[in-house]
Simulated assay, not measured.
Amino acid sequence: MSSSVERIVNDTCGSQNISKTSNFETAVPSKRTYPKRVFLIIGSQFCDFFNYYGLRVLVVMGKSSYTHIETSSENMIVRIFKCIKHAISTKRIEKEAKSHKRLLDYSIQEYGAQLVADIRIMKRMLVLYLPASFYRTLSEQQGSRWTLQANKMNGDVGFYIIKPDQIQALNPLLVLIHIPLFEIIVYPMLSKFGIRRPLQKMTIGGIFAGIAFLFTASVEFWIASSPEHSVSMLWQVPQYVSLGMGEIMFSVTGFAFSYEQAPASMKSVSQSFWFLTFALGNLILVLITKMNLFESQAHEFIMFAVLMFIDMFIFGIMARNFERMNSDVTIANDIHKNEMIESTISGDKW
């Protein structure tokens, strides 16, 4: 009896010791491991840090080579609206006299001929921005419609599984590849066919964006007629390549065009209006998608492509008018300068 009791006690104590040992072993912290993509997070944080501080250091380092232009301390956009408001109110007062043919001429005496001429240039540029906004309607779908399309596709490429929101990283990569490629090869080839002016390049860039959405529609038709997640995500590459080419020819060229064509006093104003096209493009996209015009997503992609082709046709006509008006203004300015030189030589007073 006593031996059996001792055995039970020993077994109980042994099991308690074992449980204590196991608890102790589990309490020992294991080797710390990090997620596989932690280096991507670190890299992203470094890029953000450099974007904020590094670029400011570069700006300060190159400050000595900048060209400083004295401008009015008053906000230029406010000054523009004041000039237009003054012209409207003055015209109403002098309604019967009709001393000026054009509206802004009524503000020349108050604000000067230079500001009035600059506003006229900006007005012509803003008219061009209206059809340019629809390009943003297409390009901004990379992070929405195209990502939703990738979500229905197979991202397995053998050595790696691409996530639906990772495929859009192709766009900045392709832009970096296309910039030197276009400068060295594509643009010299296009110049042989007479395509040298920025607005011509922008028109072709918009056409490439429309072609990208035709690729997108064909992939969508393929997905609809195939088993779920059977179409490889790599079939989205052609649409990204085509849109990347459009980004170089339309967006990059348009950004430079906006700065070069803007008057010296309105460089920043033109850039702000250029970025406003992003907002207008997204607004157009929201309005169209809220209409639910098509049950099939592929048909909606085709609609965007067709609208883009029509939009670029209108943009091409407006671009020709803009270039013609600019040439007329240049000729008029040259004639005016020549008249001033001749009058100065002859002793006439201005």
Rank of each mutant, 00 (worst) to 15 (best):
E342I: 00
Y34F: 11
V116A: 04
A305H: 02
T203C: 10
E220N: 00
Y34A: 02
V157P: 05
E6S: 13
P164T: 04
L234Y: 04
M125S: 11
E342W: 00
L287N: 04
S64C: 06
G347E: 07
M312Y: 11
R102A: 10
M340A: 03
I284H: 00
E25M: 11
I8V: 15
V57R: 04
L104K: 00
M303N: 00
T21H: 12
Y135K: 05
E342T: 00
G281L: 02
T330D: 10
T147N: 01
I211M: 06
G158Y: 09
Q166A: 15
M291G: 03
A305V: 03
Q142R: 10
T12Y: 15
V78K: 14
Q16K: 08
F315E: 04
Q45C: 10
F309L: 02
T26M: 09
L285T: 14
L58G: 03
V269S: 08
E295R: 00
R79G: 08
Q261A: 14
I204H: 02
A169W: 00
L176F: 13
S268M: 15
R136G: 14
F257G: 06
V286P: 03
L293Y: 11
L148V: 05
K201H: 15
N10F: 10
S346N: 10
K36A: 11
L174F: 15
L104I: 01
L280S: 13
F24Q: 13
S144G: 06
C83V: 07
G14C: 00
S133A: 15
C47N: 07
L148T: 10
E295M: 03
K349I: 13
P172Y: 00
I195R: 08
R120E: 10
Q141L: 04
S15Y: 14
I77Y: 03
E183T: 14
V306S: 13
V116Q: 00
I302Y: 07
F182K: 04
R324V: 12
I341H: 02
E96K: 09
S133Y: 00
F275K: 10
M153G: 10
V38Y: 07
I80F: 14
V286S: 13
F193K: 14
L55S: 01
M122R: 04
T344F: 11
N292E: 14
A209L: 07
G246R: 01
Q16Y: 13
S30T: 08
Q45G: 12
S44W: 11
M122I: 07
K337D: 01
G206W: 05
I119N: 03
M233C: 01
L190V: 06
